[in-house]
């Protein structure tokens, strides 16, 4: 039996909760805008999960300041760098999706994927 009430486990549960909510929105909603919101929720969940991968209990930020010169108590900097990349990529995709949505709305005057003409969703 592992300890579940550690910061890492609780954060992981929160992260997966967000991912599940996001995926639920993506698979059950019909409004493109809500699909994009779902995507962003899941994205935030994944980012929390990623940054959590390098967290150690009681660790400090990995910055060498006057007070802190020892690397022993620092959290892992690599996942933080990965999350920075992931956030930027998520932003890029969101911006593009919103641009597409504006164009689609101008074409069909609806955001409901079921009412759009061509494709099966």
């Amino acid at each position: 039996m592992n300890q579940i009430f550690t910061v890492t486990s609780l954060m992981n549960i929160a992260a997966f909760g967000l991912i599940i909510i996001g995926l639920l929105a993506i698979f059950t909603q019909r409004n493109i805008f809500k699909l994009i919101i779902g995507l962003n929720l899941a994205d935030v969940g994944v980012n929390i999960f990623l940054v959590n991968a390098g967290y150690i209990d009681g660790g400090t930020a990995p910055i060498f300041t006057d007070g802190i010169r020892s690397a022993q108590i620092m959290t892992d900097p690599v996942p933080q760098a990965l999350v920075l990349t992931a956030i930027v990529i998520g932003f890029g995709i969101t911006a593009l999706a919103l641009g597409l949505t504006i164009r689609l709305f101008e074409k069909y005057h609806t955001l409901d994927v079921k009412e759009m003409r061509g494709l099966k969703w």
Binding site: I19, L23, I26, I32, L35, I36, L39, A42, D43, V46, F49, L50, N52, A53, P79, L82, A86, I89, I93, L96, A97, L100, T101, R103, L104, K107, M116, R117, G118, L119, W121
Partner: peptide
């Protein structure tokens, strides 16, 4: 446009899965 947004949403879910795997 419609095909693109459909592709985008499915593809992004795929990318999220890859990120989850990388995190694990």
């Amino acid at each position: 446009l419609e095909a693109s947004i459909k592709y985008l949403i499915l593809g992004s879910v795929g990318s999220l899965f890859i990120l989850i795997s990388i995190g694990m």
